[in-house]
Amino acid sequence: MTAKDNIIRSHTFPRPYKGRGAISNASGRFEAYQREVIEDGYLGEDIHAPKTLVTEENARHILTKNTSPDIPFDRSVNAYRGCEHGCVYCFARPSHTYMGLSAGLDFETQLFAKPNAPALLAAEISKPGYVARPIAMGTNTDPYQPIEKERQITREMLKVLAAHDHPVTILTKSRLIVRDLDILAPMAERGLVKAGLSITTLDRRLARLLEPRAAMPQRRLDAVKLLTDAGVPTTVMFAPVIPAINDHEMEAVLAAAAHAGATEAAYILLRLPREVAGLFSEWLETHFPDRKKRVLNRLMVLKGGRLNDPRFKHRMKGQGLEADLLQQRFSGLCRRLRLNEGRVSVDVTQFKPANVKNTQYNLFDQIAQMH
Rank of each mutant, 00 (worst) to 15 (best):
Thr154Gly: 08
Ala117Phe: 07
Ala277Tyr: 13
Asn140Arg: 14
Lys18Cys: 12
Ile170Val: 11
Ala32Ile: 11
Tyr361Arg: 14
Ala260Asn: 04
Lys127Val: 13
Ala323Thr: 00
Asp180Asn: 10
Ile47His: 04
Asn297Arg: 15
Glu36Met: 13
Gly44Leu: 00
Thr67Glu: 13
Pro118Arg: 01
Glu108Ile: 05
Leu120Ile: 05
Ala258Asn: 06
Ser76Pro: 04
Leu279Lys: 10
Pro143Ile: 01
Arg338Val: 11
Ala252Tyr: 06
Arg338Phe: 11
Pro69Ala: 02
Lys114Gly: 10
Glu108Asn: 06
Arg219Tyr: 12
Val232Met: 05
Thr349Glu: 15
Trp283Asp: 07
Arg151Pro: 01
Gly278Pro: 06
Pro353Phe: 02
Val356Ala: 13
Ala122Phe: 10
Lys225Leu: 11
Met1Phe: 10
Ala119Gly: 09
Leu221Lys: 05
Pro118Ile: 04
Glu156Tyr: 02
Pro289Ile: 01
Ala92Pro: 04
Pro50Asn: 02
Gly304Glu: 03
Ala113Asn: 03
Met370Gln: 14
Ala132Asp: 03
Ile38Tyr: 12
Ala230Gly: 05
Thr359Gln: 15
Ser102Asn: 10
Val276Leu: 03
Leu302Arg: 01
Ala262Phe: 02
Pro240Val: 03
Arg306His: 14
Gly196Pro: 06
Asp290Gln: 15
Tyr33Phe: 11
Arg271Glu: 12
Leu184Tyr: 04
His166Thr: 06
Ser198Cys: 11
Pro134Cys: 05
Glu249Cys: 06
Lys357Ala: 14
Gly196Val: 07
His259Ile: 14
Lys194Ser: 13
Ile177Gly: 01
Pro167Ser: 07
Gly332Thr: 09
Asp182His: 13
Thr172Tyr: 00
Ala113Val: 09
Leu121Gln: 01
Arg29Tyr: 10
